[in-house]
Amino acid sequence: MLVLVVDGEVDTLTAPALGEALGELLAAEPVDAVAAVDLAGVGFLASSGLAVLIRAAHTASSQGRALHLLGGSRAVTRPLEVTGSDQLFTLLPGLAELLARVDGDRPAGRVRRPD
């Protein structure tokens, strides 16, 4: 399981760093690992940040996996909903829900919990 934790504001200045981090996340081995972005610490998501997330969702989809978004506040989920891009992601409240979902979807022993 691969989880990227994002804090602060995601705007024109910070979106490129997010894009780079997401690129590294989605390039990491194994390529079939569950990929998630923890947005609980994000207070603002600008259109530039939304574009980065959408590109990452398309990359993940081309790899045959979903990109999970965790813990997004209304400031994060609202832009996703308004644009309809929320349909590109699996939105979950937090890591516990992701782990429960993954444990239910995969055979026992294949999921490694983060330390």
Rank of each mutant, 00 (worst) to 15 (best):
L2W: 14
L4P: 12
V5R: 08
V5P: 14
V5N: 11
V5I: 06
G8V: 13
T14G: 12
L18W: 06
G19Q: 07
E20Q: 14
A21L: 06
L22T: 00
G23Q: 00
G23R: 03
E24V: 11
L25V: 02
A27S: 12
E29K: 09
E29Q: 09
D32Y: 08
A33E: 01
A33W: 08
V34I: 07
V37Q: 02
L39Q: 03
L39R: 02
L39G: 13
A40K: 07
G43R: 00
L45S: 01
S47A: 04
S48Q: 02
G49Y: 05
L50D: 02
L50C: 05
A56Y: 03
A60E: 02
G64W: 14
H68V: 11
G72T: 02
G72E: 00
S73R: 01
S73V: 03
S73L: 15
R74M: 08
R74L: 10
A75V: 04
T77C: 13
E81P: 07
E81Q: 09
T83P: 07
T83W: 03
Q87I: 11
L88I: 06
T90S: 11
T90I: 10
T90V: 13
T90P: 10
L92P: 01
L95I: 11
L95N: 10
A96Y: 06
E97I: 10
E97D: 13
L98P: 12
L99S: 13
A100F: 13
A100I: 15
A100W: 09
D103L: 12
D105R: 14
D105S: 07
P107S: 15
A108F: 11
A108V: 15
R113M: 10
P114A: 13
